Simulated scan of single mutants.
Amino acid sequence: MGTGRARRAVPPHTVAEGGIVSQTVRGVIARSRGAEVELVDVVVPDPGPGEAVVAVQACGVCHTDLHYREGGINDEFPFLLGHEAAGVVEAVGEGVTGVAPGDFVILNWRAVCGQCRACLKGKPWYCFATHNATQKMTLTDGTELSPALGIGAFIEKTLVAAGQCTKVPDADAAVVGLLGCGVMAGFGAAVNTGGVGRGDSVAVIGCGGVGNAAIAGAKVAGATRIIAVDVDDRKLEGAKAFGATHTVNSSVTDAIEAIRELTDGFGADVVVEAVGRPETYEQAFYARDLAGTVVLVGVPTPEKQVTLPMIDVFGRGGALKSSWYGDCLPSRDFPMLVDLYQQGRFPLADFVSERIDLGDVEAAFEKMHKGEVLRSVVEL
């Protein structure tokens, strides 16, 4: 693929088959399992009822996009990749009242319904009926695209459900767009799911973007001892910038014993597992204090299994939790985190390793695979 900046000029609206008004823009797709991504023309329909078209300003390159390309999510190729994004609402469909053209928004992949059993219980962050745009974006030959996490934001303009647009204060899109996935997942794993509070001890296993966001979240919440665990000294050094007070290289040191030693022999109050592997989950389980909390936010592949003695599950008490999207409520959490960033209290800009062009996504995947970046961010 070329690495030049994608063109921004957008052809005039055209009338597609069936009378649907649409426009053609440039976007990045994964056509088949494991194939290099392609920069192609994509047809974006005008928004229908409950939908919005957003002019994307920036989109982070997340591990989930790589999982889509590798067929690790499902096989509904071709995928329109990208989901960790911010931009400006260009148009809205009938019945949309929450956002309007001109609004600066972060895109989210859990547009809550307000009517399912979770929403009616007052726990909308668990919404079981989240929704996406009804219409499909397509290739110019009519092939329907599957947008990553219902968003598809490696593109100049994207079609989403209006509920996937969260209005926030104006800010650097390349920075705040990261709240759309990885940073929110990590921050929320510590603060929302783990319930980290003042004076708590916290251990975070895995110091990529999600793990570092959990570390930063623990610091904001008032944790006084924050232990970063990884096998890469470079990542451990980086974790200090986000608030880690201690680091453990688990390739040379027993992580469980090290965490206990750093917590007066007890174990951490909250352990966040940001890797998604059985061996690191077991470390998290045994590295927590009695009645402590384990939070799984690392995404395991389907074949991964963990086995624990039931007597230990019973005898250690506490809670074993999984964290979906940091158990976030975008309308509540995104504006709050943008405010904290703008106040200098949350180091959101430090997650941006590089700013790249739309044609550089494949190269960004390679850097991610090598552990060379926290986040490459596509700017449009």
Rank of each mutant, 00 (worst) to 15 (best):
V176Y: 02
D339H: 01
V271N: 03
T280K: 04
C181K: 01
P302Q: 12
V43C: 13
A91D: 05
Q57G: 06
G18K: 06
V25R: 14
L149W: 07
A153S: 12
F79C: 08
D312L: 07
F334H: 00
V21T: 10
F128T: 14
C113R: 05
A216G: 14
G217H: 05
A111N: 11
L308A: 05
M184G: 03
P101M: 10
F346D: 06
R225C: 10
L380Y: 12
V56L: 00
L358A: 11
D357Y: 04
T263M: 05
V306A: 11
I226N: 06
R26A: 12
A91Q: 12
G182Y: 04
F128K: 12
V196N: 05
E279L: 05
A86N: 04
A55K: 15
A203G: 06
L380W: 14
Q115M: 07
L236D: 13
I226W: 02
K219W: 03
L178W: 01
C127Q: 12
S251Q: 11
G93H: 03
V61T: 02
E362Y: 09
C328Y: 10
F242C: 14
A228L: 09
T130H: 11
V92T: 08
N212T: 09
A284P: 06
T3Y: 09
G267Y: 02
A6F: 09
C181M: 08
N132S: 15
A319C: 04
I151V: 15
A363F: 06
T253W: 03
V160E: 01
I215H: 01
W125N: 14
T245G: 05
V252L: 14
T97P: 13
M368D: 02
V295H: 03
G177A: 00
F351L: 08
L145V: 02
V313M: 14
V275E: 01
R225A: 00
F266C: 04
A148F: 02
A16P: 03
L149G: 03
S146H: 15
V352H: 09
E70P: 06
D41N: 15
L107I: 00
H369R: 14
A100N: 07
G87K: 06
Y325S: 12
V252T: 15
G93L: 00
L81W: 01
A214M: 08
V44A: 11
E366I: 15
A161Q: 00
L380D: 01
R355F: 09
R288N: 01
F334C: 00
E362I: 02
A58N: 04
L337H: 03
Y325L: 08
D65E: 10
Q57L: 11
A16E: 12
